[in-house]
């Protein structure tokens, strides 16, 4: 059951989007998000949609998979869409029943919100689907490294993040084991009211925490044995380097995102 959890689902590949520097990708996704919020007109959104789905095609991600990523947020998307559809005031009334009415402005606003959310999620999943967790934390560390001058523990945060990602599968497996062990002793996790179920979790969480602390202790020792001493004098196996691929992506981004914003302003 818990095996289904896949955080930061990364699908390995060797496409342009997989090859470019994680920093480029992070900046790219941030630019996409900004553009999605700046734009609101139909032509601009058309350009953005073409661009984002174009990137998905270039990364050879299956559309079905990207759309599946929308599922958990479907309720929110539908809810905000419907609210906007019915509750936007306006003169151009298309349909009325009692006190609810659909206006032209409502239709437009609902369409915009839905398009914005769908494209937001599709754009963000582009980053997580094509970047391995290590690359992602590496990229973040490098992007935020100017903040190290302010004595912010950027390296430590990035290290914590990548260790957390490393241990998710281990801890998930362990939770599964503990749950099976407790079930064998007659524990019941699936019935009763919320309070009851929350209580049933205690015998899982306690051993899980105890073992997590033991693991942390052993891991720290093992890291010290391998000469880990923080950021000082550290080199990396994979150097992050901007290359031709990054230039291509940046140019395409300027073209499409810039184009969309120009359309938004002019039209």
């Amino acid at each position: 059951m818990l095996k289904d959890i896949t955080l930061g689902q990364y699908f390995p590949g060797n496409t342009l989007m997989h090859r470019i520097d994680p920093r480029t990708k992070i900046l790219l996704v941030m630019a996409i998000i900004v553009a999605l919020f700046v734009c609101s007109s139909a032509p601009a959104y058309l350009v953005l949609a073409v661009y984002i789905f174009g990137l998905i095609a270039v990364s050879k991600l299956s559309l079905r998979m990207v759309l599946r990523g929308l599922k958990p947020l479907l309720v929110i998307i539908v809810f905000t869409g419907v609210l906007n559809l019915f509750l936007t005031p306006g003169d151009d009334i298309l349909w009325r029943a009692g006190f609810v009415s659909i206006t032209m402005a409502g239709v437009q606003k609902a369409a915009l919100i839905v398009a914005r959310l769908v494209l937001l999620i599709a754009g963000a999943s582009l980053l997580t689907y094509t970047t391995s967790p290590i690359q992602l934390t590496d990229g973040l560390e490098r992007l935020l490294s100017p903040l190290k001058k302010l004595h912010l523990p950027i390296h430590e945060l990035a290290m914590m993040m990548s260790l957390a990602l490393r241990f998710i599968p281990t801890l998930v497996e362990e939770t599964d084991k503990i749950m099976s062990a407790q079930r064998a002793r007659g524990a019941d996790f699936d019935s009763g009211n919320l309070l009851h179920r929350a209580k049933a979790l205690i015998p899982i969480l306690v051993p899980l925490f105890v073992s997590a602390f033991r693991r942390a202790d052993e891991l720290a020792t093992a890291m010290e044995c391998r000469l880990y001493r923080g950021d000082t004098g550290r080199t990396r196996l994979r150097q992050l380097k901007f290359g031709r691929d990054d230039a291509v992506c940046a140019a395409a981004a300027v073209l499409f995102l810039g184009g969309a914003i120009v359309l938004q302003v002019l039209v």
Partner: peptide, 14 residues
């Protein structure tokens, strides 16, 4: 250098 009993607790990367 040292290698420990539990391999899970000494592997740091994904």
């Amino acid at each position: 250098s040292m290698v420990f009993q539990n391999p899970d607790n000494q592997i740091v990367a994904t």
